[in-house]
């Protein structure tokens, strides 16, 4: 019983809604607490939290809705973000720092600098991006909890 409760605490799922920036960061906040309780070094927690938060914002800025799921699997943290959104036509271009398709409202808030995906790449140990234009995007992020 106790074991299953522990297991339950090592993963979490969050619903994300397009345009709902008010609660952005909820997933990364919970994740930070979970990782801190596991004794993960602060610098690794920051890398994970930056990756998750940028991914959350991408969904909120670009998609209609999406989910973020995180799970600690052994020495790795897996974060999977699936959205129903416009999709990414040119992934290579989207990964390029400075390229952004963010709408004006997001730019006015200081988002849309074209640094989101590059930030995720720089802060993670693995990144897999699959997208179907007109349908949505799936992003899988891996963070090694024992350091880079």
């Amino acid at each position: 019983m106790e074991e299953s409760e522990t297991m339950e605490a090592l993963e979490g799922s969050f619903q994300l809604k397009g345009g709902d920036f008010m609660d952005a960061g909820a997933a990364s906040k919970e994740m930070r607490t979970v990782l801190a309780n596991l004794g993960v070094p602060p610098e690794t927690i920051r890398r994970a939290a930056v990756s998750a938060f940028e991914a959350e914002m991408n969904v909120i800025i670009h998609a209609i809705a999406g989910t973020l799921h995180y799970a600690v699997e052994g020495d790795a943290l897996k974060i999977t973000i699936i959205d129903m959104g416009p999709g990414i036509k040119d992934i290579q271009l989207a990964m390029k720092e400075g390229y952004s398709t963010a709408p004006d409202w997001a730019r006015e808030m200081g988002w849309g600098s074209g640094m989101g995906l590059p930030n995720i790449k720089n802060n993670s140990d693995g990144l897999k991006l699959d997208s179907v234009p007109g349908e949505g995007t799936t992003l899988e992020i891996t963070i090694n909890l024992k350091g880079k």
């Binding site: 952005a24 808030m109 988002w111």
Partner: peptide
């Protein structure tokens, strides 16, 4: 004032000077 820039380049313990005032700055 660019949030991803702060996420990328600020370091722990920094004081952050900005004109942004919406809730995302707290995160």
């Amino acid at each position: 004032d660019m949030l991803s820039d702060v996420l990328a380049n600020s370091t722990e313990g920094n004081l952050w000077i900005t004109r942004q005032t919406h809730p995302n700055i707290v995160a």
